[in-house]
């Protein structure tokens, strides 16, 4: 086991090198980061040369990459280069965005997982019941809606709710511009009020899609184990129905969803682009969009390195958990 984990981690080092090089090339193919700045108004040749000197963009592509890689290993992730926004440290900005995303997705992920597993199990145990049909219908509808529309409708609804609260003489509750930058203030009650106002809509938005995925998945794997021979054997031995369902079927039906959810969580650290954009959270997704729009090579690379580590680690966790939970599977 230990050797397997070590080998997987070692394999991912060349993967990261190749990926960062390709990513750097892709950003390069988007165009010159200074191109737009040069055209905004007439610049003197000296100005242009100075700007290229400062950003290192007068050097060839390969040299720029090697410089970045060398700096990265020593903990210097580079700076933003586009004039007007230049000189911001990439490392601090990426890690800030990451902490925002982490706060946003962690709660939503846990809620979606618990709800999805519960609804999936009940749907499978009571297959073709009214509960099953309702849950199936709801998750199909959720699957079929573009997420950004859901987010926009929720946002509009939140604003309506605020207006209604105001007309009653209460405070506005829903915050649609992200969590306050300087943290929540006031008494405990006020803090809870602000906290819930900032989190409720984006959390609903994230739960909606994840829940649809998890509940369908859990229902399918639960049906599979409920129909398995070993569950029938357990029932034939005369154990109670509840014991057969929870001790025998449910525990085994959890194996696939643990894998799926850990892959999913790993990918989600890349930020919920749409939810963050609509609700004004400056998390990873928004960070990436802005970096791409301005063509910031080092910001994109910094983003990629952070998310890549999480994707790789959670992929590994998924595989290891799979082997731990299902002894028939051997890692090697």
């Amino acid at each position: 086991m230990f050797r397997y984990i070590l080998r997987r981690l070692l394999i991912s080092i060349p993967l990261l090198i190749v990926a960062s090089f390709l990513c750097f090339g892709l950003v390069n193919a988007m165009g010159d980061p200074l191109g737009e700045w040069k055209l905004q108004k007439p610049r003197t040749q000296a100005e242009i040369t100075a700007a290229y000197d400062r950003t290192g963009y007068n050097k060839p592509f390969f040299e720029r990459y090697v410089t970045w890689a060398g700096d990265f290993v020593t903990g210097d992730w580079g700076e933003s280069v586009v004039p007007g926004n230049a000189g911001k440290p990439v490392k601090e900005n990426v890690l800030d965005a990451f902490s925002v995303t982490l706060r946003l997705i962690l709660g939503a992920e846990i809620i979606a997982l618990i709800l999805g597993i519960a609804v999936g199990v009940i749907g499978a145990v009571r297959q073709y019941s009214i509960f099953d049909y309702t849950a199936t219908g709801i998750s199909f509808a959720m699957f079929s809606m573009p997420l950004f529309c859901v987010a926009l409708v929720l946002k509009a609804g939140g604003i309506q709710l605020n207006n209604w609260l105001e007309s009653l003489g209460a405070d506005r509750w829903i915050i649609t511009a992200g969590p306050p930058g300087d943290g929540f203030k006031g008494s405990i009650g006020e803090q809870i009020f602000q906290y819930s106002g900032a989190y409720v809509l984006p959390t609903i938005c994230l739960v909606v899609i994840q829940f649809a995925l998890y509940s369908r998945f859990q229902r399918a794997s639960m049906l599979e184990t409920l129909n398995a021979d070993y569950v029938r054997t357990a029932q034939a031995k005369g154990i109670s129905q509840g014991r057969a369902i929870f001790k025998h079927a449910f525990r085994n039906a959890l194996i696939p969803i643990i894998t799926v959810s850990s892959l999913n969580i790993g990918a989600n650290f890349g930020g919920a682009v749409i939810t963050e954009t609509v609700f004004g959270w400056s998390g990873m997704g928004k960070f990436l969009i802005e970096a791409i729009t301005r063509i910031e090579p080092y910001e994109v690379l910094g983003f990629m390195m952070v998310t890549a580590v999480f994707i790789i680690v959670f992929n590994l966790i998924a595989d290891v958990l799979y082997a731990v939970l299902d002894p028939r599977i051997r890692l090697d």
């Binding site: 993967l15 990261l16 190749v18 990926a19 390709l22 990513c23 892709l26 950003v27 193919a29 988007m30 165009g31 990918a267 890349g270 682009v273 990436l288 969009i289 791409i292 994109v300 983003f303 990629m304 998310t307 890549a308 994707i311 790789i312 992929n315």
Partner: peptide, 22 residues
């Protein structure tokens, strides 16, 4: 398999931006 890993790791939006912008 390594190629699939690579595509998973490179942010999809970067590829989209290159294709749409270039």
């Amino acid at each position: 398999s390594r190629f699939i890993d690579l595509i998973l790791v490179i942010p999809g939006l970067v590829i989209a931006a290159v294709l749409v912008r270039n």
